[in-house]
Amino acid sequence: MHGVLAMITQRIALGIATLFVISLLVFLAVDMLPGDPAEAILGQSATPASVAALRQELGLNKPLVVRYADWTAGLLRGDFGRSLANDRPIAELIAPRLGATLSLAALAATIALPLGVLLGILSSVHRDRALDRVASTASLLAISFPEFFTAYMLVACFSVGLGWLPAISLSSQGGIVETLTMLALPALTLSLAVIGYVLRMTRAAIMGVMASPYVEMARLKGVGPWGVVVRHALPNALSPIINVVIINLAYLVVGVVVIEVVFVYPGLGQLLVDSVAKRDIPVVQACCMLFAGTYIGLNLLADILALLANPRLRRPRQREARA
């Protein structure tokens, strides 16, 4: 037990250290972007005098080290600072966007992840039979179509054609039914891609284990195909499946900007892109840190779950119990 706890603590410490390194990288990288926020905000009509006035107001004249120190100190207090472009507190700017991103990700994940894993298991049970073939081809198709194409197809079919679902996902009222209707098409688009990945990875992981001698042994004992897959192969294939599930979860949070644009969904990705265009450095940095935090946090979770799911890591504990 101690071994596992120590390992988990170690992973968490490593995650925090990574986050710090990333904060430095983000800060430097964003600072190295060509162009100047004052010029970007004032656009083509910038005059030297107005740029100087704006730079002064934005505090861009301070040295880099001072700005980094101020920024990290703020982050530790949970204060992201204020947007350069519109002077609003960044937390206020990000909170609704993060909420929107997370609810879309949650809905897509609820549809896609269980379905993907289940279909993957079914495919490996029915290996090389009709169901497997169909699932395999369909998942390849879903993965290969670019998301915006899938999205436009779904809009053409369900919004413009049938008129069942809205074409853009921006609602002013927040009833549960209305929210779900609004989120239906983007969530479906994302689900299609994610199901494909999860299905294929689950199937591949189980297939990998199916070649091992102990599975052969189980078959020779006379265990049926379901029993072999679910009771013998699946537990050992769990680690890679957990990994792919969590990586897809991270993708649903940080990688959906195209979907946000097509469905006019005000998520974090759009905010990040808009802010880069405006050189709104604090907002870009805050978004990057949130994305990095999400990735690191979810990877940490994947590591920990994989540790717990892997019997070889549980062995020391079992020995103690037997002794």
Partner: peptide, 21 residues
């Protein structure tokens, strides 16, 4: 009056065709 920011020209057209704007 509600104004909605829609960058994508296709999304603008879809929103009008489906009566959302």
């Amino acid at each position: 009056v509600e104004m909605i920011c829609i960058k994508d020209a296709t999304a603008r057209a879809n929103a009008l065709l489906t009566g959302q704007i």
